[in-house]
Computed example of a mutant assay.
Amino acid sequence: MANPSSDDLLNATPPTGRLAQFGYAYKLTKRLDPKVTIAMLGWGLGAAAVVFALLYLLVGGSIFGLVIAIVLALMFGVLAATTTLSRRVQRAQYKQIDGQPGAAYSVLDSDRRFKRNWALTPMVQFNRQQDMVHRLIGTGGIVLLAEGDPARVKPLIANERKAVARYLGPDVAVDEIVVGPDEAAGQLPLPKLASTLTRRGLRKKNLTSMQASEYSKRLEAIASKTGPMANLPKGPLPKGARIPRGGMR
Results as ranks from 00 to 15, higher is better:
residue 160 E to K: 05
residue 27 K to A: 15
residue 150 P to Y: 04
residue 60 G to S: 03
residue 80 A to S: 06
residue 101 P to G: 01
residue 22 F to G: 04
residue 158 A to E: 15
residue 92 A to G: 07
residue 36 V to R: 06
residue 108 L to K: 08
residue 63 I to N: 06
residue 109 D to R: 13
residue 195 S to Q: 15
residue 245 R to M: 12
residue 201 G to L: 11
residue 77 G to M: 00
residue 146 A to D: 04
residue 75 M to P: 00
residue 183 E to I: 04
residue 155 P to G: 09
residue 121 T to I: 13
residue 141 G to Q: 09
residue 169 G to L: 10
residue 174 V to C: 10
residue 40 M to V: 09
residue 203 R to H: 11
residue 67 V to E: 08
residue 217 K to G: 03
residue 101 P to C: 00
residue 133 V to P: 01
residue 49 A to T: 14
residue 167 Y to P: 00
residue 9 L to T: 07
residue 174 V to P: 07
residue 134 H to L: 08
residue 107 V to E: 07
residue 4 P to C: 09
residue 219 L to R: 00
residue 201 G to D: 11
residue 127 N to T: 02
residue 8 D to I: 04
residue 93 Q to Y: 10
residue 22 F to Y: 10
residue 28 L to T: 12
residue 220 E to D: 15
residue 36 V to T: 10
residue 45 L to R: 01
residue 52 F to A: 05
residue 13 T to E: 12
residue 2 A to I: 09
residue 156 L to F: 03
residue 17 G to C: 05
residue 46 G to L: 02
residue 64 F to C: 00
residue 201 G to V: 08
residue 228 P to S: 11
residue 148 G to Q: 09
residue 169 G to I: 12
residue 190 L to T: 05
residue 137 I to S: 00
residue 53 A to W: 08
residue 78 V to P: 01
residue 139 T to E: 14
residue 46 G to C: 03
residue 118 W to C: 12
residue 223 A to W: 01
residue 115 K to T: 06
residue 110 S to P: 02
residue 200 R to L: 13
residue 122 P to G: 02
residue 141 G to A: 10
residue 205 K to P: 02
residue 24 Y to T: 05
residue 124 V to T: 13
residue 150 P to D: 05
residue 231 N to P: 01
residue 155 P to V: 11
residue 182 D to H: 08
residue 5 S to Q: 03
residue 126 F to T: 06
residue 35 K to L: 12
residue 168 L to A: 15
residue 232 L to Y: 07
residue 20 A to M: 05
residue 8 D to C: 02
residue 113 R to E: 15
residue 27 K to R: 14
residue 145 L to M: 10
residue 29 T to H: 11
residue 83 T to H: 08
residue 239 K to V: 12
residue 179 V to L: 10
residue 217 K to F: 03
residue 129 Q to L: 08
residue 139 T to A: 06
residue 23 G to L: 06
residue 44 G to D: 07
residue 61 G to E: 14
residue 72 L to H: 02
residue 27 K to Q: 15
residue 221 A to T: 05
residue 87 R to Y: 13
residue 45 L to I: 14
residue 105 Y to H: 15
residue 167 Y to G: 00
residue 217 K to C: 00
residue 179 V to I: 13
residue 31 R to D: 03
residue 224 S to D: 15
residue 136 L to P: 08
residue 141 G to N: 11
residue 216 S to N: 14
residue 48 A to K: 02
residue 108 L to F: 07
residue 44 G to I: 02
residue 144 L to S: 06
residue 37 T to R: 09
residue 155 P to Q: 08
residue 18 R to W: 13
residue 105 Y to S: 09
residue 194 A to W: 11
residue 83 T to W: 05
residue 153 V to F: 08
residue 180 G to T: 04
residue 159 N to P: 00
residue 51 V to K: 00
residue 248 M to H: 10
residue 69 A to E: 04
residue 189 P to G: 01
residue 129 Q to W: 04
residue 180 G to I: 02
residue 46 G to F: 02
residue 104 A to M: 11
residue 153 V to W: 05
residue 164 V to S: 08
residue 78 V to Q: 09
residue 43 W to V: 02
residue 88 R to Q: 15
residue 238 P to K: 11
residue 55 L to R: 04
residue 237 L to R: 10
residue 33 D to P: 07
residue 167 Y to N: 11
residue 198 T to F: 12
residue 92 A to Y: 14
residue 125 Q to A: 15
residue 46 G to K: 09
residue 165 A to T: 11
residue 111 D to R: 09
residue 188 L to E: 03
residue 34 P to D: 06
residue 225 K to H: 03
residue 106 S to E: 13
residue 41 L to D: 06
residue 55 L to V: 00
residue 198 T to E: 14
residue 188 L to C: 05
residue 91 R to I: 06
residue 1 M to Y: 07
